[in-house]
Simulated scan of single mutants.
Amino acid sequence: MKLQLAVDRVSIEKAIEIICEAEQYIDIIEIGTSLIKDFGLESVKRIRQKFPDKVILADIKTVDEAEYEFEAIYRAGADIATVLGAASLETIRICQKVAQKYQKDYMIDLLETSPEKQLELKQFTDGILCVHLPSDKSTGLQALIESTLAQIHDFPRLAVAGGIKPENMAEMKKANFEIAIVGSSITKSASIPESAKLFKSLVGGEE
Rank of each mutant, 00 (worst) to 15 (best):
C95Y: 06
H153S: 14
I108F: 04
A15M: 04
I36F: 13
Y25K: 02
A6E: 09
K137C: 00
A180C: 14
E116S: 12
I94P: 08
A87K: 02
Y25E: 08
F124N: 02
S201C: 00
L144Y: 01
E42Q: 14
C130K: 06
L144C: 03
G127V: 05
E178V: 00
V131A: 07
L129P: 12
T125I: 14
G40F: 01
S184T: 05
H132S: 10
K45S: 08
T148A: 06
E67Y: 14
I181Q: 03
V55S: 10
D105C: 04
V10H: 06
D64T: 03
L84N: 05
I152P: 06
D59H: 11
L144T: 02
F199R: 00
A180P: 02
A87R: 02
N176T: 02
I16H: 04
K54N: 02
K188R: 12
L3R: 10
E120S: 10
G162P: 08
I108L: 04
I31H: 07
T113H: 02
V7Q: 01
V160Y: 04
I12S: 07
G183C: 04
L144M: 06
Q4V: 12
D136M: 10
Q49E: 14
T187R: 09
A170F: 10
P115T: 04
S43V: 03
E65Y: 07
A175Y: 13
K2T: 06
K54V: 01
E178A: 14
E67T: 13
S88W: 02
A99R: 11
K197M: 11
S195E: 06
T113C: 15
L144R: 03
K2L: 15
P134E: 07
V55H: 07
I26V: 15
E178S: 15
I60P: 10
I152C: 08
R75L: 13
E120M: 11
D27H: 13
L129C: 12
A66Q: 08
E194Q: 13
L57Q: 10
I26H: 12
I36Q: 13
R93K: 15
T125M: 09
K2V: 04
F39K: 00
I92L: 12
I29Q: 08
S114M: 09
T125Y: 09
E71N: 15
E67H: 11
K122L: 10
L144N: 01
Q24S: 13
S114N: 10
E112T: 12
F177S: 07
I92G: 09
P115D: 05
E21H: 04
G32K: 11
L149A: 03
A72Y: 08
L57R: 01
I73M: 15
F177I: 07
